[in-house]
Simulated scan of single mutants.
Amino acid sequence: MSDHGIRVGILLSDGIWMSMPDMLLDILQSVNMRRESQLFRCDLVTPLPGPVQSFSGRKIYGDVHIEAVKERYDVIYLCHFWGDVESMAESCAKITPWLQDQYANGALIAGVSSGAFWAAQAGLLDGRKATSYWRHMKDLAKRFPKVEWQDNQALVEDANLLTSNAGNAAMDLAMHLVQRFAGEEMATEMAKDITHDTRRTYDLTLFNIAGLRQHRDSSVHKAQDWLDSNYHDKVEFNQLADDLGMSSRTFIRRFQKATGEKPTRYLQRLRVEAAKHQLINSDNSIKTISLDVGYRDFGFFSQVFKSLTEVSPREFRRRFRPGNS
């Protein structure tokens, strides 16, 4: 983040759904109003001079076109579009080098549904996990076979590249950006204020700590993948290090260098995020939730939870459960 706040470039292209940039702009402006400051500064960016034509046939004018962009953005938001990807790739050839340059200079790339196409076209998703709109998934998998497409995941982050696969997930992605740059409490209060229900058939647990994946150590990513799937079980870090071909000391050092957290603290964060999701979205007792996320000692669970959220599990549920005052 620069002294000028979070710079967000919203990429427009022919066929985009107008609701995508409009929704993000409204959410981020709501945060600015609540903070009484311009935390988020947004530009609508077009591939070429002149307007693009939306899916509904409306002309949309950008603030700047790619060749005139002088900003190094903190976030590039790739809008969902409806159109033939072959012709899109040919007509918008300038997008690929621009995205590569922005990503190389530290921009977080967030693709909504078919917007993931642009990140894949730029080669940014090669060897990484991603998702997209289900209707496009088969064609994208054929066109970009090096991408690990996740057809059962609504939200995915890998190495500072975020993708989502549907309209609801687009709102979840917007709220995640709020959480990431304006804080968890702001995101939770915003979700309640706009009656955005995060109770889906998928779990947002892993997406909420996706910021800890902003690195390119493939071995540490493998460790995170394993922990993400097994956090509720007993974890033997010595065995995990051995499975990755490292000594325990080397594993801890590389994990902390890549994520900023020791493996034990990362595991605690996973468990607390899973507990938060249940506290908001289920009627399970707090002791049951403690067991579900891997803590047999309820007192220790409460201690860890408060160390990461500054409130007890009971207070968290009281504050943030939908319908509570």
Rank of each mutant, 00 (worst) to 15 (best):
L162N: 06
L162T: 06
L162Q: 05
Y77G: 03
T264M: 10
W118R: 01
K70C: 03
I286Y: 07
I27P: 00
S113Y: 01
H176I: 04
N168Q: 10
F144E: 00
Q214W: 14
A210F: 05
G9M: 02
W134Q: 14
G294R: 02
N281W: 15
G245P: 09
T205L: 13
M186A: 11
S282Q: 12
D3H: 09
Y103K: 09
S132W: 02
G62T: 05
Q53H: 12
D22N: 09
L25G: 04
S248C: 09
S312M: 05
A159M: 14
R180I: 03
N208R: 14
L279H: 05
S30T: 10
L270T: 03
I27K: 04
D151G: 14
L11A: 03
S91E: 11
D193W: 09
L155K: 04
L204N: 04
L270Y: 04
L162D: 02
N165A: 15
P21S: 08
M23L: 10
E315I: 13
V45P: 00
I66S: 01
S56D: 11
K146W: 05
A68M: 06
A182F: 04
I286Q: 08
L240M: 14
S285K: 11
A182H: 08
A174P: 02
S218Y: 10
F81M: 06
M171V: 15
D139W: 00
K262W: 09
T205A: 13
S13Y: 02
V64N: 02
I76C: 04
V112H: 00
E273W: 08
S87D: 09
R319Y: 13
Y202E: 10
G62R: 00
G106H: 06
G62K: 00
S325Y: 13
W82P: 00
K70M: 05
L291R: 15
I209S: 10
D193T: 14
A166E: 05
V85I: 11
T201H: 10
R216S: 15
T250W: 11
K70F: 02
T250L: 15
D43L: 06
N160Y: 06
R128M: 11
Y231R: 08
S91K: 12
A68C: 05
S132M: 06
G123I: 01
